[in-house]
Amino acid sequence: MDIEKIKMKIIKYILLIVLFAIIGIGGYVYYLTYTPQGRVKWGQALFLKLSASDNVSEIADRLKTMTVLERSHFIDQMPINLEGLSVDTLKITSDSLTTYIFKPKVFDKSSPVIIYYHGGAFVLPWTNLSISYATRLSKLYNAIVVAVDYRVAPEHPFPIPNNDCFATFLWTISNIEKWGGNPSNIIVAGESAGATFASLVAIKAKQENLTNIKYQILECPAGYSPFKTTAYQKFKIGYYLQEPEMQYAIESYLPNEADRTNPLAFPFYADSLSNLPPAYIIICEFDPLKDTGKEFAEKLKNAKVPTFLKEMKGMVHSIPGPFNEKDRENLYKEILIESKRYLKK
């Protein structure tokens, strides 16, 4: 028996198996990432597959029946790493507005203070996802992060959450020195609804001649109600943030239809955007809110506000799930570099 021939046959069979496996995996990835509007990144495609439901209205229907306390546990399964940080929980107003202060145990006092406004379609309160954003920002900048659990709709519609967000800004510039922070070197940051609130706070601060805010980080902001945009029509079903949720969000936040073009509710409608702090605006390729963020960025640029617009290719709204963590890490490193051009030394 020729041992060498047998070895060669075994190697050929193994190579064929590996080849077919690669073809099979490649074919599945190709199938998985296909959508009618283009190809999403594989990590986003896998997240969409794992979180998919036959009932498009499932999340909106659940939200409608949940209390605020129940909604605060909407994303409890997300792991949290607070290593290297201390967290203080405070009530900063007479009506018990809850605010969290994330502070690195060793931090650079020249770093900015970041006021973080969480996302959640105007209806989700503080969740584990909010903690993950706050800790990421604190560790990225080695800085204090002030984060607010603003009151949410439908129990507390416009302008209550907006007032909570601005109250947090005013509290921060008056009190953050007690934690070693610089009240004159502030970043406002948020994702989705939180990005909308962050930009509104910057606009109101400018109107009141408060120049403490030096930069804005706005991830997937709702610059205005998205229902008539091209992106909304293309991505309103099947791309994570779905039409029933968005309709419920806007109806809850702005039950009075006249407020849906109110400059105090959406930043796009502000009378003037000139002299605002520089902004880094993130939009995602397959996000129904993409056009509202893009057009708000264009309006800022037209007002001569230094604005960096970053489109995350292949991503759905706010890059959900754990499979594209490297993309998010790289994105936030870019934000850090860009923002340092404008922050006080």
Rank of each mutant, 00 (worst) to 15 (best):
K139R: 11
I23L: 14
A195G: 11
G180M: 08
I101P: 11
P226M: 13
A147R: 05
S138T: 01
V123M: 04
Y253G: 07
T65D: 05
I6K: 13
I282K: 05
P79D: 04
V87S: 04
L331R: 03
I237Y: 03
P322E: 05
K5D: 09
G314P: 03
H73P: 00
Y13C: 07
S72N: 08
S94G: 12
L336Q: 07
D108C: 09
L19R: 09
K301M: 15
T230N: 07
L50P: 04
A198E: 02
K49E: 15
L137G: 01
G223D: 09
S96N: 10
I6S: 11
P161M: 15
N128S: 02
A270G: 04
Y117V: 02
P157A: 05
G223T: 10
F286Y: 15
F286T: 01
A167Q: 15
I6L: 13
G190V: 00
S110N: 14
F197D: 10
Y30F: 15
D54R: 05
G24I: 08
A222I: 13
L129D: 03
K41M: 13
I3H: 14
S225F: 11
D164G: 06
E311V: 07
I75S: 02
K234D: 02
I160L: 03
Y240W: 15
G238T: 08
S174M: 05
H156S: 08
D61I: 13
V201N: 04
F102M: 06
N81Q: 00
V148F: 07
K178V: 15
Y253I: 11
E70D: 12
T135N: 01
Y215Q: 05
Y133L: 01
I186L: 12
N212K: 01
V68P: 05
S318K: 00
S72P: 11
I101C: 05
F235L: 12
V40Q: 07
I59W: 06
I115V: 13
K12T: 11
P263R: 14
S96T: 07
P288W: 11
H317R: 06
L241W: 00
S86A: 11
I115D: 01
E325T: 06
K340Q: 07
G321T: 12
C284W: 03
A258Q: 08
E70G: 10
A303Y: 06
P288A: 11
K49M: 14
R62G: 02
I11A: 13
E219V: 06
T211L: 04
K340M: 10
W126E: 01
V56I: 15
S199T: 09
P277A: 12
T168I: 05
T261K: 09
Y248T: 00
P255W: 12
G194Y: 08
S274V: 14
Y13N: 05
M78A: 02
Y240T: 07
K5M: 12
L336F: 13
F227S: 03
T99A: 12
P159F: 13
P322R: 01
S272E: 13
V305A: 06
I187L: 10
L63S: 12
L218Q: 14
T35H: 15
E311P: 00
E338N: 09
G321Q: 02
L97T: 03
H156D: 11
A205E: 06
E311Q: 09
W126Q: 00
S318W: 00
F169K: 15
N81A: 00
